[in-house]
Amino acid sequence: MIQGDDTPDMDKGLNQRQLIHLMYALFAVGILSAGIFGAAVLAAVVLAYLKRGDMVGTVYAGHIDWIIRTFWWGLLWLALSALGSLIFVGFITGLVAVVWIIYRVAKGWLAHWAGETPLPGL
């Protein structure tokens, strides 16, 4: 047996930059499909949590945090909007929440394309 045969090939799989693109793409598919492919959003967030430790100290760490915060805040606002729809206000706040989520995904993805970290805020 040649030494090193059992070590994994580091060139296999996606690199960190490609993983971030994949996470944004999955999130976008889930949102733009009006929730039909909601599992894609969950997959993006699970992937973000799984790869969070690997990306600490890199330019991609900010994107991981951005994706995770977008998911949890978006879920909170959509849940509150669902409750608000019982008094006919939730439809408006739900629309605002969806627009905010789309904005965050677009802003983060564009920052990633530019090689930057998304700036905190909104």
Results as ranks from 00 to 15, higher is better:
Asp5Thr: 14
Ala97Trp: 01
Leu119Arg: 15
Gly94Ala: 10
Gly74Lys: 08
Leu122Pro: 00
Ile64Trp: 05
Thr93Pro: 00
Leu76Asp: 02
Leu32Thr: 13
Tyr103Asn: 09
Ala114Glu: 13
Gly53His: 12
Ile20Glu: 11
Val59Thr: 15
Gly13Asn: 06
Gly84Tyr: 00
Gly53Asp: 15
Gly115Lys: 04
Asp5Gln: 14
Phe37Glu: 04
Gln3Ser: 14
Thr93His: 02
Lys51Ser: 02
Gln18Asp: 14
Pro118Asn: 08
Val59Ile: 15
Leu86Asn: 12
Val96Lys: 04
Gly30Glu: 09
Ala34Val: 14
Ile31His: 12
His63Val: 04
Asn15Gly: 14
Ser85Pro: 00
Tyr60Arg: 07
His63Trp: 07
Tyr49Asp: 02
Arg69Gln: 10
Tyr103Met: 08
Ala114Thr: 00
Arg17Asn: 15
Gly4Lys: 05
Ala43Arg: 01
Gly53Met: 03
Leu42Met: 13
Ile87Ser: 14
Gly30His: 04
Leu14Met: 15
Arg52Gly: 00
Phe27Leu: 10
Leu75Ser: 05
Ile67Asp: 03
Asp9Leu: 06
Thr7Leu: 14
Tyr49Phe: 14
Asp54Ser: 13
Ala79Glu: 06
Phe71Pro: 00
Gly13Asp: 09
Trp73Asp: 07
Gly53Leu: 03
Leu14Ser: 10
Thr117Asp: 11
Leu50Ser: 07
Met23Glu: 11
Phe91Tyr: 12
Gly35Pro: 06
Val56Thr: 09
Val98Cys: 03
Leu119Glu: 15
Leu14Pro: 08
Asp9Tyr: 03
Ile102Tyr: 07
Tyr24Pro: 06
His112Arg: 08
Ala61Thr: 03
Asp5His: 11
Gln16Gly: 13
Ala25Trp: 09
Gly84Met: 01
Asp9Glu: 11
Gln18His: 11
Ala28Met: 09
Ile87Arg: 06
Met23Tyr: 03
Asp54Phe: 01
Pro118Ala: 10
Tyr49Ile: 09
Val98Leu: 14
His21Ser: 15
Val105Thr: 12
His112Cys: 09
Gly90Phe: 00
Leu78Thr: 01
Leu76Arg: 11
Ser81Arg: 04
Val56Glu: 03
Tyr60Ile: 01
Ala111Val: 01
